[in-house]
């Protein structure tokens, strides 16, 4: 179950975010995305989640292609974005039961998932009454609820205290130890032994003839 990113290219609003991005991640390894704002960390994660279409290139996870088998690829992905995806009107327990139903996880996993991020005390409280950090933890507890091999984490530890951040890091570590792959945009150390760090924004290749995208055609100069 290795992840290989092959020559990925993304153009947004006429700007090449990255091009020629290639990297291989072995099972049990983590890929840490670093780099300044606008380096394309979130963009890369959304492409790997199949939410954004790359302008060129592909990615394969255990032989499944992102571009030609998007649905199968997505079935292996667990994505956590900037947003917590929680509803103020539901309780913590209801919220996780809902995601368990949608992701076809067992209801028995809901309790341990709540434990995993130390939310047991709040299980029957409406999300409305939770603080920002507690909501974040609730969002992240999906990591303990849903069993999928490829994790895509976008700044998972923002607004978390040290103890909760350590719990998230432990979850990510155990995912790697069980042979999964974790791709995370994060500034804290997840303490995963085998980790590669890349800056997506540093991948900038000259466009080759066959990799030319529609936008390039509009933008290329010789007609004017």
């Amino acid at each position: 179950m290795s992840l290989s990113i092959d020559n990925l290219r993304c153009v947004r609003a006429g700007r090449t975010v990255f091009s020629g991005l290639s990297v291989d991640v072995q099972p049990g390894e983590a890929l840490i995305l670093a780099g300044p704002n606008g380096a394309g960390k979130s963009t890369l994660l959304r492409i790997l989640a199949g939410l954004l279409r790359p302008d060129a290139g592909d990615a394969q996870f255990s032989g499944v292609s992102l571009t030609s088998e998007r649905v199968e690829f997505q079935e292996r992905v667990l994505y956590t974005g900037h947003l917590d995806a929680v509803k103020p009107a539901l309780t913590v327990h209801e919220m996780l039961t809902f995601w368990a139903d949608v992701y076809d996880a067992h209801h028995d996993a809901v309790g341990p998932a709540i434990e995993a991020l130390a939310l047991a005390r709040l299980a029957d409280h409406p999300v409305r009454t939770l603080s920002a950090g507690q909501r974040r933890r609730l969002g992240l507890s999906r990591l303990a609820l849903i069993d999928r091999p490829l994790w895509l984490l976008d700044e998972p530890t923002v607004s978390l205290d040290a103890d909760s951040a350590a719990r998230v890091a432990a979850l990510a570590r155990s995912r790697c130890e069980s042979g999964g792959v974790v791709v995370a945009a994060t500034h804290i150390d997840l303490a995963i032994p085998a980790a590669k760090t890349i800056d997506p924004g540093s991948f900038k290749l000259e466009a080759t003839e066959d990799g030319v995208t529609a936008d390039d055609l509009v933008l290329s100069g010789d007609a004017w």
């Binding site: 079935e75 667990l78 974005g81 947003l83 929680v86 509803k87 995601w99 949608v102 992701y103 076809d104």
Partner: peptide, 14 residues
């Protein structure tokens, strides 16, 4: 869409 639930729905088996 605003609270991110739609991202997760799009990635779900449903």
């Amino acid at each position: 869409v605003e609270d991110g639930s739609m991202d997760l729905l799009a990635l779900s088996p449903l």
